[in-house]
Design a protein around this nucleic acid. Structure first.
Lengths: 336, 336
DNA sequence: CTGAAAGCGCTAACAT
DNA sequence: ATGTTAGCGCTTTCAG
């Protein structure tokens, strides 16, 4: 590997001068700077990020923590889209990404230890479990952090606007004459809490009576669970006219169940998803769902974190909310 | 951050002794080793990977190159599953993952330069464009590499067994009485070439005549393209009885088209996918498709690369082939 | 405008 | 069994 010393020798300059010339912003003569950069290019010089880090304490590396019970976070479209956009935005700014994890081989590092081990400049956290002491320790550390879909005190976060999302859905349902609205919630997280609160509030505003038997505890991303909840709802003496699902993917389990009951969508029963995964537009009928702007969420999170890293003095903790939009689709029937 | 020097002072030992004690495998007294490790733990010591790298030239970092025209490789289930399993397997062995890319901000690094910049110990390459000079340069460098679904001379690779996959599909179709088999191919890659060759060969073996008008150039992961090809096939005077798609996802575009033509699956026309994405099991009817063992592919790739890294003398280039299996599903009808 | 020298945290000969 | 020392590649005062 060609290093600064090699360039120095080749140019007949000192190591220090070459270093300065390469960084550009010094008081060297313009000629020298250009000359050095030219030679460096010819020699195929690539700086060594680790050596630089040792000196500057800046790794240009962003930690990403995606904790998931099933350790398959990357396989959820919502998260993989966010990750992808974090990565793109980070790269545009000269940063790389490192997944923070428990490092099994090494002494089973905690998340914080792993972050230090790799010297990341900051961490983006998108987890299902923000109560995990390790996650809390990471957030409370001196490292800049941005959380996604969860707010810690005095810390920056980027949230998908779940309150608005549920509001929009309820409004749309009411417009279409629905009064018997069932709601299958996801696991008990802060996101779910926001959605549930928003649900009750929106129903109150629209004078929609909420029947407790229409509210089902479900889970995110598990079609079987949504299927089971759907079955229970369908077997109710006073069946709802529409079912809201925790997400588009688990909704598929609901569709299966509805078809088993010999019902048609939306003629016999309406359904609404959440997320707006690509598939939702490919299904027939096209899904009625709320499309989360997941790539924007990733971009905002990366930008905010980089801002926090690069401007520690002036960057303030911030709550960024990212709006989505209603995909009207064809799975909600206009009634009476 | 607590460093070795701090531990040394706290223990009344030299820096060198502490370093040795921490690594364990030295000629220090067992007592000292235990004592030092104890103190290190109490002080919350975490080694600095970069400092270590500078000395040892080992980063315990694996580069992952996922090039994709649409830069959304992570959003393809096949790739995201592979990535996820690479990550898991790497972590089990104490490695982290770094995405190799063109680093826009820095001087637009080449893939190879980026790999050097981050000092990765090796690279796993899963690309759609193995003809890219930059990819070739990376493979030809001194870095250990493992490619996925493509074979370079004298280099290790892990391949999904596409030849077997197509064979199994054809066998299954023939068993079910199909003779008019249409095949929509993906983009022109080596994977596609293997599949096409296998297609012709399997048809020959089973005495299935191949009609050129049944062979369509398509694309991976673009439902619209599969939709268009489907339309053309359906409008043929002598319609095929079954259509094979490049992948499960783009197949959805075909379904839409088939339904537009008022045809039922599989009563009026049979369809077969490729990949075995999770969705394929949720759709009704359940998709007939060939399930690629993508997580096994990732695991094998990571293992082989780590073997190459850790045993440069004894590890040989290897072609690893990963088999999948037929998911019979319900979209192929048994005819006469 | 350019160079000398120190040091980031760590490991690995080579002493002792 | 433990310590001394050099140095990995880089940046950054501080001198000249």
């Amino acid at each position: 590997m060609v290093k600064i010393k090699d360039i120095a020798e080749s140019c007949g300059l000192s190591i220090a001068s070459v270093s300065k010339a390469l960084s550009g912003k010094s008081d060297l003569s313009q000629k020298t700077i250009e000359y050095v950069q030219q030679v460096a290019k010819e020699m195929g010089y690539v700086p060594n990020a680790s050596a630089r880090l040792l000196k500057t304490n800046r790794s240009y590396n962003i930690g990403v923590l995606f904790v998931d019970k099933t350790s398959s976070g990357l396989e959820h479209e919502y998260f993989s889209t966010i990750l992808n956009s974090i990565k793109d935005e980070a790269e545009k700014n000269g940063y790389d990404i490192t997944f923070i994890s428990h490092h099994f081989s090494n002494n089973n590092l905690t998340f914080y230890e792993h972050a230090k081990y790799r010297n990341v400049d900051g961490v983006i956290i998108a987890s299902v479990d923000f109560k995990d002491p390790e996650v809390i320790k990471l957030v409370d550390s001196s490292l800049p952090t941005v959380t996604i879909d969860y707010d810690f005190n005095d810390k920056s976060s980027v949230d998908s606007d779940n309150v608005q999302g549920i509001q929009d859905i309820i409004s749309y349902l009411v417009e279409n004459g629905h009064k018997k609205i069932a709601f299958i919630q996801g696991d008990d997280t802060s996101v779910t809490q926001k959605r549930v609160t928003s649900f009750y509030r929106a129903c109150a505003i629209h004078n929609v009576p909420v029947k407790e038997e229409y509210i089902k505890q479900g889970a995110y991303h598990i079609p079987q669970v949504s299927g089971k909840a759907t079955r229970e709802l369908l077997e109710l003496p006073d069946r709802p006219t529409v079912i809201m699902y925790p997400d588009d993917y688990s909704l598929l389990g609901g569709i299966t169940e509805i078809e088993k009951h010999g019902l048609r969508i939306p003629e016999d029963i309406s359904i609404v998803g959440y997320d707006g995964i690509k598939l939702s537009r490919l299904l027939r009928p096209v899904l009625t769902t709320y499309v989360q702007n997941s790539s924007e969420i990733g971009i905002q999170a990366a930008r905010k974190l980089i801002d926090l890293i690069e401007n520690p003095k002036t960057s303030l903790p911030e709550r960024i909310s990212v709006k989505g939009y209603m995909q009207k689709g064809e799975t909600v029937k206009k009634i009476n």
